[in-house]
Design a protein around this nucleic acid. Sequence first.
DNA 1: AAGGAAGTCAACCTTTCGGCCGAGGCGAAA
DNA 2: TTTCGCCTCGGCCGAAAGGTTGACTTCCTT
Lengths: 209, 209
Amino acid sequence: MSEAIRILVADDHNVVRQGLVALIKTVPDMTVVAEAADGAQAVELFRQHRPDVTIMDLRLPGMSGVDAITHIRRDFPSARILVLTTFDGDENIFRALQAGARGYLLKDMFGDELMEAIRSVHAGKTRIPAPIAQRLAERMGGPSLTNRELDVLKLIVAGKSNKDIGAELAISEATVKTHINSILSKLGVSDRTQAATTALQRGIVELPQ
Amino acid sequence: MSEAIRILVADDHNVVRQGLVALIKTVPDMTVVAEAADGAQAVELFRQHRPDVTIMDLRLPGMSGVDAITHIRRDFPSARILVLTTFDGDENIFRALQAGARGYLLKDMFGDELMEAIRSVHAGKTRIPAPIAQRLAERMGGPSLTNRELDVLKLIVAGKSNKDIGAELAISEATVKTHINSILSKLGVSDRTQAATTALQRGIVELPQ
DNA sequence: AAGGAAGTCAACCTTTCGGCCGAGGCGAAA
DNA sequence: TTTCGCCTCGGCCGAAAGGTTGACTTCCTT
């Protein structure tokens, strides 16, 4: 029999992470070599331990999960990272895979499915459940927002008026309206409130706190 | 030594719930007697097993965690329920404690803190961390929305226009505007988009899916 | 060099929204 | 019974938002 799969677990919810570790401990051929509670720690601990597989939540304080994946994969292109999160917004899925994640799992899956996914990723395969792949496909077709449009969208979600947005971004209100027009048509909605809620649903922006 | 504390765990995220169970298994004087993946199941399993302490997430499919708590406490007023969730919106905290929860913990707490909280609740005490109590106090001061205002607020979050809301609730657009006026002043915001985002932040309404 | 995407701004117009007023009905509580 | 909160509706008004079209600049890619 080969050696145990060495695992790094990154999740900011301590009790969840500890539970995950306890669950993995029940499997003979897997070992948790380190636990991270935020993104920076995940990067540092990966560097120290070079785990075979990294299980990473996307919502991490400080450096986000996506940023952590990017950093790790930049230094260690062969890193095998498995995203385990509750968010299934297409934007989150896209960014995580874009950053180099090898799998994207939701936390409603069962423990044995997780173990199977860990083995798959360890073996060099990718692991993306059909419903997740479906959402990814949907996002592929649609247009993507420009950086400036994202700036405006964030301020819309923050509840700012067009005038406020213009002041904050140092552009005229006319320009703000132009961007909002693009945003509405790209998101397929007809007003700013719909833009805000669908952006939150799709994981394009996050709600503060 | 007294008998082990008998625990029911209700959480729809299977891998998280199983992890939690694995974590509790490492403690000698606690036993998980049942696991529920949704609210109705939690109620049914409580009835069957009468656990000493119930650990419940608030976001459950079908019957919500709050509804499950209400049902359980109606039939078993002495039930000791500990909410373990990620949401710290004041409205969620309020509703859970209103429904009869004895404690409200966030998932970023550590395993040993959870065990201590379980013992506290089992001993008949309540367990509400200071930051949580703080949020609860904030909500206490403010005015609360009426049922009708909640109806309107949900449709605002759904991205409906005043005209659509009127049609859906079978009231005139003028009435809708009256309700929205109340909502804006009660939430302390100045437009519908802010109303939507702050309602989501505070846990007054949920984002579909 | 030419093309396209992105960002900027302006003018115009219609619709919607939000603020502010008043008012009636209805049911529960004092 | 009277009072109060909730729900209902109307009108008026100004402000904000959204639709449309066109134009100019920069930068990147072809």
